[in-house]
Design a protein around this nucleic acid. Structure first.
Lengths: 257, 257
DNA sequence: CGACTAGTTGAGGCCAGTCAATGTTGGTGG
DNA sequence: CCACCAACATTGACTGGCCTCAACTAGTCG
């Protein structure tokens, strides 16, 4: 509860950013045919309910690398499902300090924290060319009242975000640098696996600085650790390309003083 | 999302803990007459809806200092509203490491993270003699489908927990010890104020170790900082009794390298 | 090709952790 | 009521892990 992650209406940046939400009505999304439907909000919904949910998804937004979907302080009215690409979310302190709070990929729902205050509490920025489904929250709430399964899913996504954050708090509050990075890699690996990608070979979408910010470390420390892991034969690093050679070793690093 | 904060079914402790939930049906709670109704789940509900919500609250549970309301891994089926006293929630890592994740007082809703997995993700322990209202989650969900205002409140509480956690992440990830403790005190002060208590004079319900755990510090560091703040004339400490002498100085410490 | 951003590596310093001794408080039973 | 004990808290001396500062390299894009 400490720290109100700023919610002043005006974004920190001076320039009014170009509206990134290019709604392309032709590109209407359909959960029915979406490959992420088993990981995303529609999970477990019957065909009829699925169609109702489809009707909530107005359009998609496309973001180029570096563009932001929303910023801290902006009015909240929709949740977003990542359909393609990936984003980071960052929270800002009053003094402008910024910290990466999350790394979101296919099937993740983002924007949840805006519900509490009707304003976005953080900023979501595309790490690569990205596409998201836009779900008007008001309509989602309406539909959730009619479709218990959707209601429950919504609650689950909210609650899972809380659990996730608790995990990060544990990481930031009690783990050593080495352990943090190991946890980060194991976690990424697992998430890629669930999405049908290789769990041992993947590309980092974040810079060393962003990874460091996420893990409460400085970029130099992250870089040094990558080098050390490589020297120890645990991983192979080539810039942002990671190949995990000894998953067991990574797991061993986790939960060990 | 790093770190699955353990969810193994069996609690860590060896002994099966005595069921702490002593439901006293005579002590039926009534939101209608509860002093916390403006801070708690009923906020903004009309009289009729309030009565419906009352019907969801089955009974209260009483906890003596040190007793736990639920533990990590136990099946989830209810949310709890703090009616009297206070609790801490702690998350555990697989290796048994424990960290205080939250400090909850009058009007707070706890147990939210259990929704995501149907099992509690953390442990809630009373810091003093405490009373909570028990709200069966299934019935709450049912009612939320009928009462939009309640539905929205539920969402807000979930989302606010997320924002709160983001604040803690910012604290743990990027603040120095001094700043963390200042944030902690300012935050406590504000919460007491909102509840009608003094914002400058209060009693800590946690040990130095628990505070440290919450702030990602060691108990000696917390102790040293309290002493230093006192030497500097910012606060007056007498064990767990805190008197803030210069609130402005605390605010200045926040957001300053 | 030059300018820029991202990443690596080294040297040294500092903040918070660790270890240890001592003081204080609160609850319990005689 | 007081003595006792255990839990909690304070303080000091020392250590070490990560940060800071800095130099250098490797790609990338106009």
């Amino acid at each position: 509860m400490p720290v109100q992650p700023r919610q002043s209406p005006a974004p920190a940046g001076a320039t009014p950013h170009a509206a990134p939400v290019i709604s392309i009505r032709d590109l209407k999304s359909h959960c029915t045919s979406c490959s992420m439907r088993e990981l995303c909000l529609p999970v477990g919904l019957g065909p009829d309910d699925l169609k109702l949910l489809d009707s909530v998804i107005g359009s998609r937004a496309r973001l180029k690398k570096g563009e932001s979907l929303y910023r801290a302080g902006e009015p909240f009215h929709a949740l977003y499902a990542v359909r393609l690409g990936s984003l980071k979310t960052t929270v800002l302190a009053e003094d402008g300090r910024e910290q990466v709070a999350g790394y979101h990929m296919l099937g993740d729902i983002i924007g949840l924290d805006g519900i509490g205050t009707d304003r976005h509490g953080c900023q979501a920025t595309a790490l690569e060319d990205t596409e998201v489904c836009i779900m008007q929250f008001q309509r989602l709430e309406e539909l959730a009242r009619k479709v218990p399964a959707l209601q429950h899913n919504l609650h689950r996504f909210l609650a899972r975000e809380i659990s996730r954050d608790h995990g990060v708090m544990l990481l930031l509050g009690s783990m050593r640098a080495e352990e943090r990075l190991a946890v980060f890699l194991v976690n990424l690996s697992e998430r890629y696996r669930r999405r049908g990608y290789s769990s041992t070979e993947f590309v980092l979408r974040m810079t060393r600085e962003e990874i460091g910010s996420y893990l409460g470390l400085k970029l130099e420390t992250v870089s040094r650790l990558f080098s050390r892991f490589q020297d120890e034969g645990v991983i192979q690093v080539q810039g942002r390309n990671i190949k995990v050679l000894e998953m067991a070793a990574l797991h061993r690093l986790v939960g060990q003083k």
